[in-house]
């Protein structure tokens, strides 16, 4: 891993530390049907244990940013991106399907997809243990602790098909945390839940992530819920084009 000394381009934050996730001048460009859409992240910093919500209208590029942060989409040249001392932008130089890219994605990140993304042929317990097996670091005690913490004890031996949506999301959260990742990326993790369940699941998610020092970055439309849970917000503002550009607004100082 290359040691990174990141230049600060933010007028608001005097210095970007390299302890958590940090991105400077991150850009993605999409084109199709004669139209171009650009997403620009001038700067982004997420410290260990911190939670940050990306907000914005549908189609503003929240998921694109999550994909870029989660090593699922290549940033454009010139993007500076790292977690800790790892230069993640450089991983794309070998192409999108290198084992190193997959390995870093698995090791550094946990994902909570909107759909849960659970494997239907594994039990709740095995789904939660999967990232540990991928990383080669089995830790059954930690899995049991997560199952207990997220109230999944009665469902541990069941398959996802027999779970409620709330139980599936709690399983997805446990899975995302099971290998103790540095960052957890959640794409509208509570949008499929009723309000009461959504608050309960989100609270559990944030508490558990904070306990293990994982940074959480999520996307959401629900500004009130973000505020209720004390999650810092960064919104995406769309500027008319061409090209249409969605820019992540500066962090509040």
């Amino acid at each position: 891993m290359a040691n990174m000394s990141l230049p600060c381009r933010s007028t608001c934050c005097p210095e970007l530390t390299s302890a958590g996730l940090h991105m400077v001048d991150g850009r993605i460009s999409l084109s199709g049907g004669g139209r171009r859409f650009e997403v620009h992240v001038p700067e982004l910093q997420l410290d260990p244990g911190q939670a940050l919500a990306l907000t914005g209208a549908s189609g503003s590029g929240k998921t694109l940013i999550l994909e870029m942060l989660g090593l699922l989409r290549a940033p454009q040249d010139g993007t500076i991106y790292g977690v800790g001392n790892a230069d993640l932008a450089a991983l794309w130089q070998g192409g999108p399907r290198t084992p190193k890219l997959a390995e870093m994605r698995g090791r550094l990140f946990g994902f909570v997809p909107q759909s849960g993304g659970l494997l239907p042929f594994l039990t709740v317990r095995d789904n939660i243990a999967l990232p540990q097996r991928v990383c080669g670091q089995p830790d059954p005690d930690w899995c049991a602790s997560l199952i207990d913490r997220l109230g999944l004890g009665d469902q541990a031996g069941q398959y996802p098909a027999s779970l409620s949506i709330g139980q599936r999301q709690r399983t997805a959260i446990a899975r995302a945390l099971s290998h103790r990742p540095r960052i957890v990326i959640a794409d509208e993790p509570t949008s499929a839940l009723d309000p009461a369940s959504a608050d309960q699941v989100l609270a559990l998610f944030l508490e558990t992530a904070a306990e293990q020092g994982a940074g959480v970055i999520l996307s959401s439309h629900d500004l009130d819920r973000m505020d209720r849970h004390g999650i810092a917000r960064r919104s995406l503002a769309v500027e008319a084009g061409p090209p249409v550009t969605s820019r992540l607004e500066a962090a509040p100082c």
Binding site: L72, R97, T98, P99, L101, A102, E103, M104, R105, G106, R107, F111, P113, G117, L118, L119, L130, P131, V134, C135, R175
Partner: peptide, 10 residues
């Protein structure tokens, strides 16, 4: 989903 948790394509 399997690829998402870090299993490489090969």
């Amino acid at each position: 989903s399997i690829a998402l948790v870090g299993v490489p394509g090969r």
